[in-house]
Nucleic acid binder design. Sequence first.
DNA 1: CCCCAATATCAGCGTTTTGCTGATTGACTC
DNA 2: GAGTCAATCAGCAAAACGCTGATATTGGGG
Lengths: 215, 215
Amino acid sequence: MTIKVILADDHQLFREGLANLLADFPEIEVIAQAVNGKDAIDKAKQLNPDVVIMDINMPDLDGVEATAQLLKEKPGIKVIGLSMHVDKPYIKGMLEAGSSGYLFKNCSYDELIKAIQTVYSGKKYLSEKITEILIQEYLNKEEIGPSTSSDLTDRESEILKLIAEGISVSDISNQLFVSIKTINTHKQHILEKLNLKTTTDIVKYALKKGIISLE
Amino acid sequence: MTIKVILADDHQLFREGLANLLADFPEIEVIAQAVNGKDAIDKAKQLNPDVVIMDINMPDLDGVEATAQLLKEKPGIKVIGLSMHVDKPYIKGMLEAGSSGYLFKNCSYDELIKAIQTVYSGKKYLSEKITEILIQEYLNKEEIGPSTSSDLTDRESEILKLIAEGISVSDISNQLFVSIKTINTHKQHILEKLNLKTTTDIVKYALKKGIISLE
DNA sequence: CCCCAATATCAGCGTTTTGCTGATTGACTC
DNA sequence: GAGTCAATCAGCAAAACGCTGATATTGGGG
């Protein structure tokens, strides 16, 4: 009884490498490879794999959307998300979409095998780092008093996004019908809370967190 | 007689997959793996490989810088650059640094093998796409009249990078021992040439082109 | 019910950065 | 040697930044 796996990643070299690694493990069989989210959905619907290993950053249809659409039609399939960095919004997105696991690309081969086996048995598998992040988030929400939480208010998040998009402070103030001074204060609070120094840092932060994207 | 190869990439899963792929090929032996540019230089100096497969986007020391430093000390080593997307500045940087080849991560296993063998024999190897780009660039340079080229001068590129890294104009002027006014003028020229409007745009441009990276 | 803490709003004031125009010097080209 | 380009600097007004402090509103907990 082998575990049937589909690999979805837009980089052929990565896919081939992974497939080759998994080929050494008789319990796991890679039945197909997909080059983007759309392809992954098509092949999964057709081939009924047990597990789909889904890269997050893919052209055409990203991993989060693909996972959501796939699980809507085939809720029995287990999906493991794979990404390069710690992107909270992506992680949250994948978990909300119903993925059974999440790993980083700098995890080990052994961890990947373990993750596949774990989700196949119906359990969830998260990498160490993700678990830490979830705990952190959980604790932050429970914390009382002057917490060390770096969470922004709704308004601050809104302004963070606008700043990161490159809109000037005065334009933001016009857009939101408040004074320039107000936007400035919010911006300062954002910088403090996130431990940043410059507007440039805000842009990079937003990109890292997936709040905005290039192009 | 095997070809000794060092793999440098910050993602363990990718490295392991690639190593496993190459292990199937008796003529090639992966003698070490490196997790960043610094690591790659250290291991290459120590182990004297024939070929280094160098990812471009790495923490600590990126592939371009690592290649330049490595080849300064060990000019006999062949370096193959590996990147995800078509980033002209990276490609140019790697070629200037003296790399013997350049591939994309969505190339095939066969192409990688061919590239390793080719550079080992002392020749250059570029993927199809890169070749096309080089031809394109070559043709553009031959164009007469008001060319559409938006190339920056060396000084402008230098300042572009510093700005994108988040260094303030006055700090840059101190760092380069010129007046604030000068940096300002350069910045304006950069904005004009690249058809951008704000500092934020510069950061995004630099990220898109791979001149800087997050984290 | 009142107070506290958090949030969102705005002001003052000095420094820094932008935006725009223009000027000088050196280097390389034709 | 005239022309172009790169790199350097200046002036000046408008905008943005950095820091401190103030006011209004809201939503619990004592």
